[in-house]
């Protein structure tokens, strides 16, 4: 079984801090990681490979340094890595990104299954999976938390709903977006990681010409949506900050709660 896994390198946004003086985002020292949901997609792919055989191709789009995410995916068990990297891809919205990924998948060719994380923690859109599926004309199942059965022609999975779940049979090839509940991702294998960082590692970098797209179709120019303004959210509350001794702080706070008839 040939599986393609879509992976994104993201800043570890849980580490984000604001500059106490300016209120600006402090970006220094923030690590880049494989997007958490994508790690679960990788684990699912490696699991399927272990039971069904086949090959895993990991596909990512990003700046040159995103090759680290691809290497890490190889260390987890992927066989081949492809990074789509070109200045022309920068500033892409999900429309342009899904087109770029879709074109690359067409170039990769044969596959039975495409796996991706439900959403990336830096954008939280959850749009790439379904958009890629539509571009490739594949059935999709999103929010997958259990893979029950995989045959040559179809698979049965469970997808999470707000108040329960659905068991769904999908014709193959199909695209799944997965959530964290699906599995516990393995750690990258150290020996494999060293190999994956070597020059002869099976990682290719493709640019716009390699996948046969024009600059105006991708990146910011190929996007349909554009950010026209960004702003810090208004602090709507005038906070009163209590510092000092714990007992005294709690006494002051409970006093406030009583004043407002909250306790």
């Amino acid at each position: 079984m040939n599986i393609i896994v879509l992976v994104k390198q993201v800043p570890d946004t849980t580490e984000v801090k604001l500059d106490p003086k300016t209120g600006n985002l402090m970006r220094e020292g923030i690590d880049s990681i494989i997007n958490p949901d994508d790690r679960h997609a990788l684990e699912a792919a490696v699991n399927l490979k272990e039971t069904k055989g086949g090959k895993i191709t990991v596909l990512s789009m990003g700046p040159p340094q995103a090759v680290d995410a691809v290497s890490e995916a190889l260390a987890m068990g992927a066989d081949r890595g492809i990074l789509l990297s070109d200045a022309a891809f920068a500033g892409a919205d999900t429309w342009a990104t899904s087109y770029t990924l879709g074109r690359a998948i067409k170039k990769i060719g044969r596959y039975d299954l495409i796996l991706c994380g439900r959403q990336a923690i830096d954008g939280d859109t959850a749009q790439i999976g379904p958009q890629v599926a539509d571009y490739l004309d594949l059935p999709q199942v999103s929010y997958v938390y259990h893979i029950e059965k995989v045959n040559r022609k179809s698979m049965v999975v469970k997808r999470r709903l707000e108040d329960g779940f659905e068991r769904v049979r999908a014709a193959m090839p199909a695209l799944l977006t997965v959530i964290g509940e699906l599995n516990l991702p393995r750690y990258p294998h150290v020996g494999r990681l060293i190999d994956a960082c070597r020059e002869k590692a099976p990682i290719e970098v493709w640019n716009a010409a390699d996948i046969g797209v024009e600059t105006r179709e991708v990146g910011l120019e190929g996007s349909l949506t554009h950010v026209i303004k960004t702003f810090a959210p208004k602090a709507q509350r005038e906070g009163e900050i209590i510092e000092g001794d714990v007992k005294e702080s709690v006494r002051i706070l409970t006093g406030k709660l009583k004043e407002n008839r909250l306790i």
């Binding site: 801090k17 602090a235 906070g239 714990v246 702080s249 709690v250 006494r251 706070l253 409970t254 709660l257």
Partner: peptide
């Protein structure tokens, strides 16, 4: 400097492992 203080009505700067049990005592009492 945590941004949460910007949206809070009241904030206690301190170790939650001390503050939370203390609050539990005070609230239970009230």
């Amino acid at each position: 400097g945590a941004p949460i203080f910007k949206v809070a009505d009241w904030g206690i700067v301190g170790d939650l492992h001390q503050v939370v049990p203390e609050m539990t005592r005070a609230v239970s009492q009230s």
